[in-house]
Design a protein around this nucleic acid. Structure first.
Length: 861
RNA sequence: GCCGAUGUGGCGAAAUGGCAGACGCAACGGACUUAAAAUCCGUUCUCGCUAACGCGAGGUAUGGGUUCGAAUCCCAUCAUCGGCACCA
């Protein structure tokens, strides 16, 4: 290809324009207070999910979303908005460190190299980022504020009465440490020996680490946790006002997993001597259920094997079996424990409890199908109406009582029915529907003080510490076994320059090796855990608003301007992959809400409109991967066809949100289209040089040309607003095809085309605009500074329209009539058509449906 | 297993209640050329009828339904992809 002549000289003018944009800072978005700030302009914040700069460089999947946002950004600028369109680097985190360990280079060095590579690749595509706002999460000027936000979280508690975070000093209880939004807990965590770190639940997939696919085991460790569960309800409720895909909202709701039900207390019944004392002290076991209406059907109880009451209630003769079962459970990996189609297991404790409704004495078991971390870690077994309980009861021969009658079934047939029916064998609520039964029995329990309505969430608190080197150190010190936050003015806490940053493998973080650094004072030592990769991405979009501010994480005025507005969310458009549908987006919303509650932010939500771009597959329709050898590198594509063709092809492939395979042939097709645009305006002379085409004239477009110009303005504008870039490009192809053979080409039409095409192909259109302006004068400014054109509806109005004539819904003929012809005219004109008369021969017309300007449908038989 | 998305030519797709296949790729034919590339013009859903302009029938995963009219709305089934997966 390099030998062959380029269809248009993109290799010359693409770098030229990139240089001009850079030098003139064309895309700098001024902040309030800057001299070039124009307060009359509305703001528009369009954001990409910033990349993690890996060693492999960009592949064609990255720029898909980036191109979409760039088109919107350029379009909105031409529409007169002050557009914030920034880019930065999510530079801390596991992969950087793994890569560094593998290559034997310090992560700071590899990260710097990778960032440089990513940046030059992005710049080659011609994105209109405001590079003066570039940020890097591993830069002390950035993570200083990540640590500062951690301090705000640490120094807050969630007041359940106001449903808001408040400063910890407003807490009146005895032990503030027990309610902080950041707290330390000994919890069974996902320990990955290979990575030498603990992972969040979300980073473990099928018992293996998401990064690297190494085995993960359960192990109790002291860890920092963030109390995200306090926000569970608001994280669900406040999705309401966001313009997100319904599917993503649902994914978040399911992840948070709200269930409504009741907590019920079961008193421990008389039992063997060892537990009698416990019983006397009034022990009771609390269970959570979503089906309090099935209480009469509870014929046994199950505790999670790790439940703390197990030791107190187990009978002497059952001890060996129980201990054995607990040990076996503890040894099981997550993978084994969640294995599909696995048999139920369990052990009898020897203890009994009383069903508060039926007063029956029922046995207490332990079983690993009950999870300690959910609800109260204990359940009532209702085998009649729960699949798992039924399976368990059948295996251990426990009684099964039907208490909900399925519609149209007998009580015996209703065993195993888990839907809503009618209560039976339940004296208090017999005959009531399941819904009524729930309400009534909950009230009944509340009156007796043995239960209450309750809500539970699947969401767990966020395990926030990592035993790694390449992350933000905690701004926390330890003294006499107690943690204490550092003061704001001690930030940033910079990690020590360690030679050996590899994980220790024991669970001691690498920072523990920095003996000097750890010593904070004679009495206090530093926290040696670091924050997880998510930390920086939880608030980076805020820093973009005011990236250089050294007094505040974001200036108040800048925050109000860029993150304000009429809607709940501050960022107007956020585009990124679905892989972040739960984690990043949930964590960022959580941090945002804490900061909002504490009065630092204008709006309760970070991202108003969210769009997920679809995955780009290899030419073989398989997921792109090195091992398959089907990875497409943007650099190759740009070398061959130029950045504009690359951008346009990425958008022309199909709908943004859809998964679609790459095609080099497809790129060629789009490159041909851009070459046709070039040749509408330029012509090659004898010497093989490009010069302005003599066909280009200052003439008025004819009627047909006007129609296509205004039709294209309309379609492209609408399509950009709805992110339907593929059809916008189609329409511009139609435009170009219509002008290709015109003997004279009106300059005004070309100017319009260049403006419309500019967001898609900014280099080509800038170059051609300059050429045209060189000859035809009037404007000296750049195409990017032009106003977006409006269309004239009057031009598009037709005097005559084609009317489809159908018989019984089948197309039989067409009719050309004046626009807005009335129904009578249409009817008689249609019936007069020879073809129609032919088809109607021998038939009787029953009815005629007429839609003006569209169709006439004759119903006949 | 549960939840969600998708299913249209040889391929990427368009049309979201009113002409199915815009636009692009590929293929075929033509013009230009000594030739090729590039460029420009044309054809291309399937089947049948016609010497031909054309005409007819069928067709949007499958089966049913609603409607004057369905790729589009509803029900069921199948397939592919994604998420969750003992959450009581």
């Amino acid at each position: 290809m390099s030998e062959r002549r380029k269809p248009y000289p993109f290799d010359f003018f693409e770098p030229k324009w990139q240089r001009i944009w850079d030098e003139r800072r064309v895309f700098h978005a001024p902040n309030p207070g800057e001299s070039s700030f124009d307060p009359s302009k509305q703001k528009f914040y369009v954001l990409d999910m910033f990349p993690y700069p890996s060693g492999a460089g960009l592949h064609v999947g990255h720029p898909e979303g980036y191109t979409a946002t760039d088109i919107v950004a350029r379009y909105k600028r031409m529409r007169g908005f002050n557009v914030l369109h920034p880019m930065g680097w999510d530079a801390f985190g596991l992969p950087a460190e793994q890569y560094a360990i593998k290559t034997g280079q310090h992560p700071a060095i590899t990260t710097r190299e990778n960032v440089a590579k990513f940046k030059s690749q992005l710049q080659r595509i011609g994105f209109s980022y405001d590079w003066q706002r570039e940020i890097n999460t591993s830069d002390p000027d950035f993570y200083r504020w990540t640590q500062w936000i951690f301090l705000q979280i640490y120094n807050s508690w969630f007041n359940s009465e106001t449903q808001r975070a408040e400063p910890i000093r407003t807490y009146r209880g005895a032990d503030p440490d027990s309610v902080r939004l950041a707290y330390v807990a000994d919890v069974p965590v996902n320990w990955c020996p290979e990575l030498g770190t603990v992972l969040a639940n979300e980073e473990v997939i099928d018992g293996k680490s998401e990064v690297g696919g190494f085995p993960v085991v359960r192990r109790p460790m002291r860890q920092w946790m963030l109390r995200i569960t306090a926000y569970a309800e608001r994280l669900i409720d406040e999705l309401e006002g966001l313009d997100w895909p319904e599917g993503i909202k649902l994914l978040q709701r399911n992840w948070i997993g709200r269930s409504d039900g009741a907590e019920i207390d079961f008193p421990i019944a008389g039992m063997a001597d060892s537990v009698a004392a416990a019983s006397d002290r009034g022990y009771k076991i609390r269970v959570f259920t979503t089906r309090p209406d099935t209480l009469y059907g509870a014929t046994y109880m199950v505790l999670a094997p790790e439940h703390s009451l197990v030791e107190l209630i187990v009978s002497e003769e059952q001890w060996p079996a129980v201990r054995d079962y607990r040990e076996r459970t503890a040894r099981k990996s997550d993978l084994e424990r969640t294995e599909l189609a696995k048999e139920k297991t369990g052990a009898f404790t020897g203890a009994f409890t009383i069903n508060p409704a039926s007063s029956e004495k029922i046995p207490i078991w332990i079983a690993d199908y009950v999870l300690l971390g959910y609800g109260t870690g204990a359940i009532m077994g209702v085998p009649g109406h729960d699949e798992r309980d039924l399976e368990f009861a059948r295996k251990f021969q426990l009684p099964i009582i039907p208490v909900v009658q399925a519609p149209g079934k007998t009580p015996a047939e209703s065993i195993g029915f888990v839907g809503d029916g009618m209560a039976i064998n339940s004296p208090i609520i017999d005959g009531l529907s399941s819904v009524e039964g729930k309400t009534k029995i909950t009230r009944w329990l509340e009156e007796r003080g043995v239960g209450k309505g309750a809500v539970n969430y699947k969401l767990r608190d966020w395990l926030f510490s990592r035993q790694r080197y390449w992350g933000e150190p905690f701004p926390v010190i330890w003294e006499k076994g107690a943690h204490r936050a550092l003061d704001e003015n001690e930030l940033p806490v910079v990690p020590p320059a360690l030679e050996d940053y590899k994980p220790s493998g024991t669970g001691d973080p690498p920072l523990a090796k920095a003996k000097e650094w750890i010593r904070y004072s004679d009495k206090a030592t530093r926290e040696t855990n670091t924050m997880p990769q998510w930390a920086g991405s939880c608030w980076y979009y805020l820093r973009f608003c005011d990236p250089k501010n050294d007094r505040r994480f974001v200036g108040e005025e800048a925050e109000r301007y860029w993150m304000g507005g009429a809607k709940a969310g501050g960022v107007d458009l956020y585009i990124g992959g679905t892989e972040h549908a739960v984690l990043h987006l949930l964590y960022a919303r959580f941090w945002h809400k804490v900061l909002f509650d504490l009065g630092y932010l204008s709006k309760p939500e970070p991202f108003q409109r969210l769009v997920n771009q679809g995955l780009i597959l290899g030419e073989d329709s398989q997921k792109m991967s090195k091992s398959r050898g089907n990875v497409v590198n943007p650099d190759t594509v740009i070398d061959q066809h130029g950045a504009d063709a690359f951008r346009c092809y990425e958008m022309f492939m199909g709908p943004l949100e859809q998964m679609k395979p790459w095609s080099m042939r497809g790129v060629e097709g789009v490159a041909r289209f851009l070459a046709r645009v070039w040749r509408l305006i330029m012509e090659e002379n004898q010497a093989g040089e490009w010069e302005l085409s003599p066909r280009l004239r200052e003439i008025a477009p004819d009627k047909a040309q006007q129609k296509i110009v205004h039709g294209t303005i309309k379609k492209v504008s609408e399509d950009i607003e709805s992110l339907s870039f593929n059809t916008a490009i189609s329409q511009m192809m139609v435009f170009v095809n219509a002008f290709t053979n015109a003997p004279a080409i009106p300059v005004s039409a070309m100017r319009t085309l260049l403006v419309l095409l500019n967001p898609f192909a900014p280099h080509l259109t800038s170059e051609l605009w300059e050429k045209i302006s060189g000859r035809f004068g009037d404007t000296r400014s750049d195409v990017a500074e032009q106003e977006w054109p409006g269309h004239d509806e009057a031009v598009l109005v037709e005097d005559e329209v084609d009317i489809i004539v159908q018989i019984n819904g089948k197309l039989r003929d067409k009719l050309r009539v004046a626009i807005d012809a009335n129904e009578e005219e249409l009817k008689s004109a249609a019936l007069d058509l020879p073809k129609i008369q032919q088809h109607l021969a021998g038939k009787e017309v029953r009815k005629i449906v007429i839609v003006p300007n569209k169709i006439v449908n004759i119903v006949a038989n």
